[in-house]
Nucleic acid binder design. Structure first.
Lengths: 238, 238
DNA sequence: CGCTGAATTGAGTCACATCAAGAAGCGTGG
DNA sequence: CCACGCTTCTTGATGTGACTCAATTCAGCG
């Protein structure tokens, strides 16, 4: 594994406070791997053998049922994923696939669980992380249940612009079909919804979104700190 | 606090493995209180000062945005709730109100966090619990995104019958308006959806649901262990 | 009982999905 | 470097599940 990858992982809230002994031990047991775009990493129902950490690229966690499929989460580096399944030692509830060429570090779940038992600081960090993940899912459910598709889209656009440094213009970081599914709509609906927001503060140029009127867009989204987690490039929250 | 209440709490996965010293310490710092029906316990955005434990009665966790309101979770005894907010020491993302007369134990979040720092077994239990809560929320999001209202209702009815001991007939444990909101629909839609399921294995008598054909109903719900958590009266899972 | 909130029923509307066709990217290989 | 072909994206026409509004009916409770 590359040293710079380790450094990125070390920065994660999960590992920031952990002894370097614990950390190096886990890294020694881990694998780093590069995957091509649109590759399935694992499927829902598989045994949770590894904690995954996305170092570079992008990953979608999605779920399927009865022939339907929905994107549950879109991940950007550096992020760990499916921690809960590893802790519980239960099958994944979601499938994962790369959005683009991605490098991913895999920490064996057995080693992770052993390290947690040994290192109280790690246990505390995992606990804190899981509490945050739970709250993220609550936010997402609220988003789904309380907002319409159009409102969810507006909120996502604002969050995205914010995340990239409050820019007035940005490229969509994922394919529209995936974004649509993530937002709980069809690609066709997303296309129309984007079109419909032109009169509410955005302009479009292919995969580029230009925010022409923050206030109008914010009025559609009705930003709420108890739903939307605005992270700037630097800060954190939850 | 009544001794039998303590016994119930002691049975929770959260406290089952914890030293009696830790447990008694927490109980000594806690309050037990009886609330009338339909009373707001706290609102979203409030500071998370207490871990709540429902001993008797029923509680709905719900959320509001922009004038809309949605039930996120329906709770039955004995259950703890809003653990994540206490761990994170952040505002509640959901509001809570009693469904009926309920007795609730409140553990001060400061004391809880202190106990976790002191007692590794408690930390481990909290970690495990949060991982489970996270997975429950994932199931719920999958349910929302992948199933139609009708399918969600069918699945809920099956789960409910199962929970009460695989009975063929049971009373709805909550008001229909709350159930509707929990399932992501309006009361009118629930009423019609229940009617519509009459041809698929159920019969109705006011608040009583009679399952006349498990197979037909199961076919509508398309049970999936990665969405539906079937708990019988005794066992557990996640 | 009679009052009040809950549940049902009906009619009309709307948001979003579906189906289908065309346009635009984009990676591949000649 | 261009042409081909696949995929994604867009746009249009139509369908439908679910919401809204309104009017009863029903049930619980003082």
């Amino acid at each position: 594994m590359r040293e710079e990858d380790k450094a990125g992982i070390r920065e994660l809230p999960l590992f920031r406070e952990v002894s370097s002994e614990t950390f190096q031990g886990l890294m020694a047991a881990s694998y780093s791997q590069v995957f091509p775009p649109k590759l399935d990493l694992f499927g829902q129902g598989d045994r949770a053998d590894f904690l995954h950490i996305l170092i570079e690229g992008g990953v979608a966690l999605h779920a399927q049922w009865n022939g339907r499929d929905a994107v549950m989460t879109l991940l950007r580096p550096v992020s760990s994923f499916i921690l809960a399944a590893c802790i519980r030692d239960m099958p994944y509830l979601m499938s994962a696939r790369t959005l683009e060429r991605s490098t991913i570090v895999m920490i064996p779940a057995v080693d992770l669980r052993a390290a947690i038992r040994r290192d109280g600081d790690l246990a505390a960090a995992v606990m804190f992380e899981l509490a945050g993940s739970y709250r993220s899912m609550v936010r997402q459910s609220k988003n789904l249940k309380l907002r319409t598709a159009r409102e969810r889209l507006a909120a996502w656009l604002l969050a995205q612009a914010h995340r990239q440094g409050r820019v007035n213009s940005f490229l969509l970081p994922v394919e529209k079909r995936d974004l649509a599914s993530y937002l709980g709509m069809t690609p066709e609906s997303l296309s129309r919804a984007l079109g419909g927001l032109k009169s509410d503060g955005i302009a479009l140029d292919g995969a580029r979104v230009i925010i022409t009127d923050w206030n109008r867009l914010a009025a559609v989204a009705a930003y709420d700190p108890l739903i939307d987690k605005l992270i700037d490039k630097w800060g954190e929250d939850t």
